[in-house]
Design a binder for these strands. Structure first.
Lengths: 132, 132
DNA sequence: CGGGATCCTAGGGGATACTG
DNA sequence: CAGTATCCCCTAGGATCCCG
């Protein structure tokens, strides 16, 4: 809340744990969204063209890829470079700030890879107990 | 890569970078969702009761808190303990696997905190140029 | 090739009310 | 206290077509 700089009411508990939850949210939303994390991780390995990203992220629609890239660009995490050849060529690469995020995101993906089976198993067990 | 329009090396791109994108997705979705990351981070500092979480995560609806906790439990990341006193008491804590994720998630939050201003500034600049 | 503009639908998620 | 159940809105996001 409090966009004007005034601090939120000091009466609440959480602030020590999660300072400025609300304001963090929209930064985290970028990380949290469906595609950004994949795109960031990919760009972490080097610049990519639009079409490369489209093929690499497999399953993303051109609309969402564009939207994702725009948001990332807007947030200063990705830089867009247009080379007006014909056909046109557009490259995307991480900014320095983007690179630092990419590191975090990549370790998140690593976590997901390492725990994929565990999670799958947990779900089966849970559903089994609850379901039937 | 290639300065002209020709393709770089053949179909090399994604798989080694993002193996099994599709299957990773539903694990990442848990991280990516709006509330899980906050809840995980909070639980990373110790067990919490339902009502504590509700107040701490401030802004979450009881519905979403329950849903979030259920998913996390289902994924084997959070353990639920009911103490049938009256009034009833329910505690949530991270499982060992959950704890490892909590670490990742927390560093993500730290990133968000550290770059909040940068992101905000970037957005202003971008919007300004775009002429919104 | 790299997008913008449109249309449209599933389901994420808030508000509110009820229960053991 | 710790949920469950309903209603309902809204927008994330896929599909499609077009354009420089």
């Amino acid at each position: 809340m409090t966009e004007d700089g005034t601090l939120p009411s000091p009466t609440h508990i959480d602030v020590r744990d999660l300072p400025a939850t609300c304001e963090l949210r929209d930064v985290l939303d970028r990380v949290g969204d469906k595609w950004s994390v994949l795109v960031m991780a990919l760009l972490g390995t080097g610049p990519r063209r639009y079409s490369e990203l489209r093929r690499a992220v497999e399953g993303i629609s051109q609309r969402m890829l564009t939207l994702t890239l725009r948001s990332l660009e807007r947030d200063g995490l990705v830089a867009r470079t247009v080379t007006p050849t014909s056909p046109p060529r557009v490259d995307y690469e991480l900014t320095p700030a983007g690179a630092t995020l990419s590191v975090e995101v990549s370790s998140l993906i690593r976590w997901a890879e390492e725990h994929r089976e565990y999670v799958a198993k947990s779900r089966l067990t849970y559903d089994e107990v609850a379901g039937a």
